[in-house]
């Protein structure tokens, strides 16, 4: 009976927490959130867009101001970052260190102590044969996400 109660509690808990977690884990920012199109540069148009968003209410564009669900989560902020800076990220990954890698892993919620090991892991399997930047970014994000999920989940908790 005690076991059954525990099982029911666990099931209930998983049903309560699952949607948010799944939204974080399964979303592909490139396919589902239009990464690239949603990235703001620093020209006037960007200012105009951010203005519109501001006036619509409390949905903001910056990574840490986003809500935790679907396309507004921190993982998407990390994906945006990778998409914008993939050239630097790729260079720093083959070298093995750099400020873009630090920022990227911070955005993925990874503890500083784990950064070096994650970079080594990603570096070991890095595919640098992709031709265009957007595909490079998507492939990189996918590799990083699966590395973190499979090996560094405890050290990288999106909060």
């Amino acid at each position: 009976m005690k076991l059954a109660l525990l099982a029911v509690s666990a099931l209930t808990l998983s049903m309560v927490t699952a949607p948010a977690v799944q939204a974080q884990q399964k979303v592909n920012p490139w396919k589902q959130c239009g990464i690239g199109a949603m990235i703001f540069d620093d020209n006037g148009t960007a200012a105009a867009i951010s203005n519109v968003i501001w006036d619509l209410g409390t949905t903001a564009v910056s990574s840490n101001v986003s809500s935790q669900d679907s396309c507004n989560g921190l993982k998407v902020a990390a994906a945006e970052f990778i998409n914008s800076t993939i050239t630097n990220i790729e260079e720093e990954t083959v070298i093995g260190e750099g400020q873009h890698l630090t920022a990227m892993l911070n955005l993925m919620g990874c503890e500083v102590a784990a950064h070096s090991a994650i970079i080594q892991d990603v570096r070991a399997d890095l595919d640098v044969s992709v031709a265009d930047k957007s595909s490079k970014a998507e492939a990189y994000y996918s590799q990083l996400d699966s590395t973190i999920t499979s090996k560094f989940a405890a050290q990288c908790q999106i909060i």
Partner: peptide, 9 residues
């Protein structure tokens, strides 16, 4: 307008 963003942009 004033806008904001992360320094990497």
């Amino acid at each position: 307008v004033f806008s904001y963003g992360d320094f990497y942009r």
